[in-house]
Structure formats: C-alpha cells, structure tokens
Computed example of a mutant assay.
Amino acid sequence: MPAHPYLAAAGPRVLAHRGLATAAPENTLLAFAHALALGITHIETDVHASRDGVAVIAHDAELQRVAGRPGGVAELDARALGRLDLGGGHGMPTLDAALEAFPEARFNIDVKSAAAIAPTAEAVRRHRAEHRVLLTSFSERRRAAAVRLAPGVATSASGPRFAAALLAARVGLRPLVRRALAGLDAVQIPERALGIETTAPPLLRAFHDAGVEVHVWTINDPTTMRALLERGVDGVVTDRADLAVEVLRSLA
C-alpha cells in the first residue's frame, strides 16, 4: 500500500518538537517558522480546546509553565489565549492559524484532551489539510475519535496500541504486531518503554514489517540522532531541529 501523503517524501525525517524554541517560545507561529526555515517539513505539536471550543496549540493543560500565570487553557477563550504573552509578545495560536500560516507544512498533532477532538478535526477539514496532517494521542479513545472525524488523515499508535505491538515484537509474534498496528501509519516512541529498548534491530524490523514508520522522541543529542538514523529509524522528534538537520546532511 502506498504511503500516506504525510509520509510520501523520502526520509529520514526531522519532526520539530513544538517547533524550534531556541529563539522563540515553544508552540508559537514563530517557533514553527524558525523550524521550517531550516528546510524541514514536519512540525510536531499539541492541541487543547479553549473555553469557546476552539483548537488551540498548547502542550500543557495549565498556563503556569508557558505563561507564568495560574489557570488552564480551557478557562479562557481563544482570543484571550492569543493575547497571552508567552515571550516576546507571542501568544497561543489556534490550529486554524497554524494551518493557514504554513500551508505546505506537515503537522503531527497530539490531541491532548477530549474537548479538543471535534475542534481539531473541524480545523483540519476546514483547511482541507488531511493530506498533510497526522493525528494521534496517548489515548486510543481520543486518537480513534479524532481520526473518525477527519477521515483521510495519517495517524500513529496510541499508548495501548504501541504497548501491544512492542510486547508482541519482543517475543517474535509478528502477526500480532501487524494486528496491533493495523490501520496506522507510524509509531512515535521513546527510546525505552516497558523496560525494553524500542529500536533494537529485531523490534525495528517487526515494526517495519507491519508497514509503519518508526519515529523516536525526544532526541536532542546529535550522537544519539546519528546512531538511531544509522540503525534505520525513519525519523527523530527533536527540540533541536537545527542540530538534526546537520546530522542529516552529514549522513547524506
């Protein structure tokens, strides 16, 4: 089966984790612009829902870490969230704004709350962005619901789906790996899970045999990036897209 358009370009891939926040606040349009200016194509980001039911780009449910104030994303409307100063006068953008500002970018979107499912899917459909969006969640219920509401998007394994695949791969049950990952386009995983090195060569082969790409997070050390890419992973999710681009060039 041909790859989803989100993954159609030749890899390996750099997925800029919340953009590039070395000179911009994370998960802002400026952070995304800095990452894309490096020539990469994929942005990893997160969505919550505002009080008025808009999909807004934010990793945390609470505002303290990024905005230095109490309260939660869900307590403010999208306009108020956009006026917050996350640093340098940059506010919390809506998913609509990001999809519109960067019409060629691929967005890897982690749906962080049940309230964000419908507005996220609506934004993707509104911008006809299904070909350039991957929707996922640690929760299988959220992941499946979001994908149902935005048919045609790519998707990666939830926590439970990946755990099942990992354990099956560990004992060599490849039919069960394929069953656990059926209908998915990628697994996006840490280097270790359940006490297991997730990219050990036999496991990596099992995931690839199931027809999914393997993206590893969150890798910021160039030596580790190089080792993983040489091992055969398909992408790294990183806070340091600038360093990852240099690693890719050195491997070309």
Rank of each mutant, 00 (worst) to 15 (best):
P2Y: 14
L7Y: 09
A8Q: 10
A9K: 13
G11L: 04
A16T: 07
A16Q: 06
L20H: 10
L20M: 15
N27P: 01
F32V: 13
L36Q: 04
I40K: 01
H42L: 10
H48W: 14
S50K: 03
A55D: 04
R65W: 15
V66A: 12
G72N: 09
A74D: 10
A74Q: 06
L76P: 00
D77I: 11
G82E: 11
H90M: 12
T94E: 03
L95Q: 04
L99I: 12
F102Q: 08
P103G: 06
F107M: 11
V111I: 06
A116Q: 01
I117W: 09
I117R: 04
A121F: 08
E122C: 11
A129E: 02
E130W: 05
E130F: 02
H131E: 14
S137D: 04
F138N: 04
V147D: 00
R148P: 03
R148I: 14
P151M: 00
S156L: 02
G159A: 05
A163H: 07
L166D: 02
R179Y: 10
D185F: 05
I189R: 02
A193T: 03
E197N: 05
R205C: 02
A206G: 08
F207A: 04
D209M: 05
A210S: 10
G211R: 03
W217I: 03
W217A: 14
T218D: 13
I219L: 03
P222Y: 10
M225N: 13
M225Q: 05
R226A: 06
R226C: 02
L229C: 09
E230N: 15
E230C: 12
G232W: 05
V236M: 00
R240N: 04
A244F: 01
A244D: 03
A244C: 11
